[in-house]
Nucleic acid binder design. Structure first.
Lengths: 336, 336
DNA sequence: TTGAAAGCGCTAACAG
DNA sequence: CTGTTAGCGCTTTCAA
C-alpha cells in the first residue's frame, strides 16, 4: 500500500508541491538540480501520481469509451483492437461498453449515469431508434459509427454502405448470377445498416434488369452465423433456389456456407457467396470468402479525429466522414 | 454543458449537500418528503453526479482493467465479452488494455504509470518472464489468467492445460493416429501456455508407446493462422508426413486446415486436426473443428471473485483456481 | 434526520 | 525559477 502523495515528495525533497508537480508533468521551468533532487525523492518514496485527483483538478479524464453491442463478434473485436491501439498512441485509455441486444443499454451509453467518466464516446448503435439518438445527445462528445441517418449535429463515420452493396451485387451479376438472395437482415426491426445494404443490393439488381424477388430476402431472427445457417437451410429445404447469396455480414456468410455445404450445394459453382467486413477469419474459411472490406484504420482514425475536436471544444455542425472500402475477391465469388 | 453540482441541487432544494448525497446514494435515513423534494430538484436541474469527484472522495474507482495481447484474436474477444458482461453485472466498468507483442507493455500493465486508475486488473500475460512478473507485483490487485507458473502470492485462474492436452492427444490416438504433429508453439521463447500443452501432448504420446518425433513439432514465428498455415505448408512441401495435427489454438488449426486443403490432403481422413479454445467460429469452419473447450464463464467468474476479494482487502497467499474444460468433438477429429 | 466543514490528491493562478 | 493558496465535486465524520 504505497500511499505516497505529492506533498510527501515535496517535503522529502524540501521543495513545494508546485515544483514536484512541475517535474512530474515535465514542465520546462525547473532547474536541473531541483529536478534531479525531486526525481530522487520520487524514486525513494515510490511515488505514483494519483490519476483520479489529477482528473478532478484538470477536468479531463484521458479516457474514451467504445460502445458496441458485443466485442465477441469478429468485426467489433477487430474494431476494438484498432481503436484501442489508436487511443493508446494518442494518450487515451479505453473503456469498453457492451450494449448487447438492449435498447436500454444503448440509451445508457448516451445518458451515462455519471458525468466526467470519459472525455468522449465512440458508439456503434445497433438497435436504438433515430429519434432516441437525437433526444439523448448529451454533454459528452459522441461520434457515431456505421449509422446512416444520424441526427443533426452528430458526427458520424462509416463506409458508403449503399455503394459497397451495389458493387458487390454487380460483382455477383458479372458472374452471370441472376437469382441473388440477400441473407441476414433482421426479420423484425430492420437496422439502418441492413437497410442501406438492402438498398444498394436492390438498386444494382434493378439497374441490371434483374428481378428483385421478395422470396429471396432471407431475414434472420438474430445477427449471427447460427441464425443465418438456419435461415438459409430452411430456404433450401423449402425448395428455394438461387445462384448467389449476398450476406449482410461475414458471420451470416459463414452460416450460409455451412448450410449450403451440408446440403451438398457447391460454392461457388452452384451458389456464389459474399460477406461483409472482411474479418481476418474469412481468409481461412473453406472456401475463402469474397467480402466488402472497410478501411478500418481510416475509419478509426477519422472517428478519433472528430472526437478529439469535440473534446477540444468544437461545437459546430455534425460532420459525416465516409471511409473508403474495397471488395476482397476470393474463392466464394471469384472474378468473372 | 450541464455543469450542475451537488451543491446546486442542495440550494435548489433548500437542503444541505449531505442530504442530497444521501438521496443520490440511496441512504436510508431521509424522510420521504425531503427525498422527493431533492429528486425533483435533481430532475429539474438535470444533475448527474461526477464520477471523478466521487472516486477521489471514496478512493474506489469502480473500474477494472482487462489486459490481453490483442482483442482481435477470437479467444480474447470472447474472453473480453464475457468479462465485460460480468463486470457490468457486478457494478464495475471495464478498461481494455492491449499489450501487443511487447514485454514492455506487459510490464506497464503491472506498474501502471498512475495509481488509482482501476481497482484491480485481470491480466493474461503472453510474453513477460516469470521473474519479471514477480518483481512488478504492485499495489493494485491482479489476477493472472492462463499462466502456469505464477509467482508466489499471485492469484491465477486457468484450465488444466496439461490434462486437456493429454485428453486431446488421447482422442487422436484412439482414432488410430500415430504420427501426430504439434502445431503453433512459438519458435522462439516458448510461452508457458505452449509449454504446458506440449507437455501434455508428449506425455500422452509416450504413455501410448508412440514416438515423439521432434520433426513433428511445427513451431511458428507468430501466434496466428497465417503463421500456422505457412509452417504446416512448408512441412508438407518438405515431404513431412503425419496423420494428425494437434494445434496449439483454434487459429493455428484454421491455418493448418487451410494448408492441408490447398495440398489436397483430406481432413480428417488423411489428417485429423484439433484446435484449442473452441471459439464460436470453429463451429463454422469446413470441416468443423474438434477443440478443447474451456469453461469461459467459470473462468471469468473465478477471476472476478478472486479479484473482488483482493480489492476488498484480502492480503493472503496466492490462490490458484483450475476452471473446468471439455473436448468438443466435431468433424476434423470425430469420435473413433 | 439533517447540517457544517474538513478533506481526498492534484493542478493552476498568482505572486514573489 | 519556485512557493502559496484556492479550488475540482463529492463523501463523511461529528454535531445539532
Amino acid at each position: 500500500m504505497a500511499r505516497v502523495r505529492l506533498q510527501d515528495v515535496a517535503e522529502h525533497a524540501g521543495v513545494s508541491m508546485k515544483t514536484v508537480s512541475n517535474v512530474v508533468n515535465d514542465y520546462p521551468h525547473v532547474s536541473p538540480a531541483t529536478r534531479s533532487q525531486v526525481l530522487a525523492s520520487i524514486e525513494a518514496l515510490g511515488y505514483r501520481p494519483n490519476a483520479t485527483a489529477r482528473r478532478l483538478a484538470t477536468g479531463r479524464t484521458g479516457t474514451l469509451a467504445l460502445a458496441v453491442s458485443d466485442v465477441s463478434l469478429p468485426y467489433f473485436a477487430e474494431l476494438a483492437s484498432t481503436i484501442s491501439r489508436l487511443a493508446t498512441s494518442r494518450g487515451y485509455r479505453l473503456l469498453l461498453e457492451q450494449t448487447g441486444e438492449s435498447v436500454e443499454a444503448e440509451r445508457a451509453v448516451l445518458l451515462g449515469g455519471e458525468s466526467g467518466l470519459v472525455d468522449g464516446i465512440i458508439f456503434q448503435p445497433s438497435h436504438i431508434a433515430l429519434d432516441d439518438l437525437a433526444r439523448y445527445t448529451t454533454a459528452t462528445p459522441v461520434v457515431l459509427l456505421g449509422e446512416g441517418d444520424a441526427p443533426e449535429g452528430v458526427d458520424t463515420v462509416m463506409i458508403d454502405n449503399t455503394a459497397a452493396a451495389r458493387e458487390v451485387t454487380e460483382h455477383l451479376l458479372r458472374l452471370g448470377r441472376r437469382r441473388v438472395a440477400f441473407v441476414g437482415h433482421e426479420a423484425h426491426g430492420l437496422s439502418a445498416t441492413s437497410r442501406q445494404r438492402l438498398n444498394g443490393f436492390e438498386t444494382a439488381l434493378r439497374e441490371a434488369g434483374a428481378r428483385v424477388d421478395p422470396a429471396l430476402l432471407l431475414a434472420t431472427d438474430a445477427i449471427s452465423a447460427e441464425a443465418a445457417e438456419r435461415a438459409v437451410g430452411a430456404a433450401l429445404d423449402g425448395g428455394l433456389r438461387f445462384d448467389a447469396a449476398f450476406c449482410r455480414d461475414d458471420l451470416a456468410a459463414l452460416g450460409a456456407l455451412s448450410a449450403l455445404r451440408r446440403r451438398g450445394v457447391r460454392v461457388p459453382d452452384d451458389v456464389a457467396v459474399t460477406g461483409w467486413d472482411d474479418v481476418t477469419l474469412t481468409r481461412f474459411s473453406n472456401p475463402t470468402l469474397t467480402a466488402v472490406h472497410p478501411d478500418l484504420d481510416h475509419l478509426a482514425r477519422s472517428a478519433m479525429d472528430l472526437l478529439e475536436e469535440r473534446v477540444g471544444g468544437y461545437r459546430g455542425a455534425g460532420r459525416h466522414v465516409v471511409a473508403p472500402h474495397s471488395i476482397s475477391v476470393r474463392e466464394s465469388a471469384p472474378s468473372a
